[in-house]
Design a protein around this nucleic acid. Sequence first.
DNA 1: TTCCGACAGTGGGGTCGCAAT
DNA 2: ATTGCGACCCCACTATCGGAA
Length: 294
Amino acid sequence: MPGFIKPQLATLKSKAPRGEQWLHEIKYDGYRIQVHTIGGKNKVYTRNGLDWTKRFSTIAGALDIPGDAIIDGEVVVVHEGRTSFSELQAELAAGRQDRLVYYAFDLLWRDGDLRNFPQIERKQALLDLLGENGIELPVLYSEHLVGNGQQMFEHAAKLNWEGIISKRADAPYRSERNENWLKIKAVHKGKFPVVGFIKDPSGVAALYLGKQQGKDLVYVGKVGTGWSRTVSSKIRKQLDTVVSPKSKLTRPIRKPKATWVEPKFFADVEYRDITSEGLLRASSFKGLSRNHKL
DNA sequence: TTCCGACAGTGGGGTCGCAAT
DNA sequence: ATTGCGACCCCACTATCGGAA
């Protein structure tokens, strides 16, 4: 029985793969967790191999499996029909575990190494394992569909899910990022007025973004990636022409590092989610344009 | 010689705990 | 009492460097 196994990671793609050799699962938005069961003594490891058994004691306690097993999966909180990262954080911050659900999607060890078995066989073994031990909440088996990736993705997007993970049915488990696991995500796009920036040797380190809400200009967070050094300096040159002594936000926020600007430029941004605080999560910069209306 | 992938670094939104202000 | 920092979680992306092609 090995110790912590570095998890396999997925490569980002914009389109779901076609063909019957692919199986597709829901993309869960939570914490990647590896559960080790060693004759009833269970341990829970984070993505980087830290022992978080205590923080996820309900998950660890729920699995009563004879013999040794290593299960890969994601711990989540389901909120309004989808897995919610911010609700998961809120749950943990409150020191509670009632709403935690563990979606198990791979079996790496079962009284022996399963990593070289095909994906589809590992999943079957996982289903058998969970099924025969009568596992119920908070542990669930992550179902999949075979083929029809594009349909599955469209369905996921309609339901406002994060996206899908597509896996080669015949592939082994490897502790790396490769093309046997693909993540296809629904991205949100937006155009937000730039209300300030943080300086940087190459130009800007980050942009402060706002959003017009009725008569108010409200803060929606920062974006700090997506540009090269050359683009960074171009952005800086543009923004330097509209520097303002004071923040134009309706409810100004105190940010010591900020240089405020008139909201005359719009940033095209892609993001994954809006946090409970109303800020953009995992945002990236795609372009800058002038606002002709103001 | 050129190209590509892994990795480090930087940027984001969160949480926590601790130390300095 | 507030603020800043470093660990952790999640993430997107750029720059670099060494090895493969």
